[in-house]
Amino acid sequence: MIAGPDSYHNFLGRKALKRFSRSTVLFLLTFCWCASVPAAPRDEYAVKAAFVMNFAMLTEWPETAFSNPTENITLCVVGTSTLPQAFQSIEGKKIGKRLLHVEAVDSQATTPKCHIVFYKDEVDTADLVRTLSAVRGKPVLTVGEKERVTKLGGAIHFYTQNGKLKFAINPTVIAKQGLKLSSRLLKIATLIDN
């Protein structure tokens, strides 16, 4: 693919051809390397897990949310099926002075102590309403896969636009939960008020 077709051999001198080929290779390599990240579509959960980790880094919890300055940040992934591997892989990631701890929570359970709750789409509405009501006004960042979660009082939901993941934040809910989000996060989010 890189070596030119036969016609080039005739048209260009050997040296020119060599130079051309080398620069083409370099150019194409650079291009391919740059393109590799956005070109191959990634598993949605892998991207969501990475987003959630970033939310953890860009959120400030009140001191009362932790018993000590190095206590783990607990991320509860609520659903009826197993924890997606992507979420397992962010276990133990460093968030400032703290570590991220990921826990799978059955949607029928009463929610344990969590700093972030990620609701999988399969969670039924009754469970969603019940567990959201338990964290109302408390310093817990609630994130859902669909708009349903913010409609029912959650803080953040994901949505897809042109095949890319975006997210929407309800600042009123964030304020009520006593959380502070970095301006960097607010700048790129879609702000909503349900």
């Binding site: 579509p41 897809t160 993941l165």
Partner: peptide
């Protein structure tokens, strides 16, 4: 991350 294409 906002620029990553995802599979549904």
């Amino acid at each position: 991350l906002m620029g990553i294409q995802v599979t549904s």
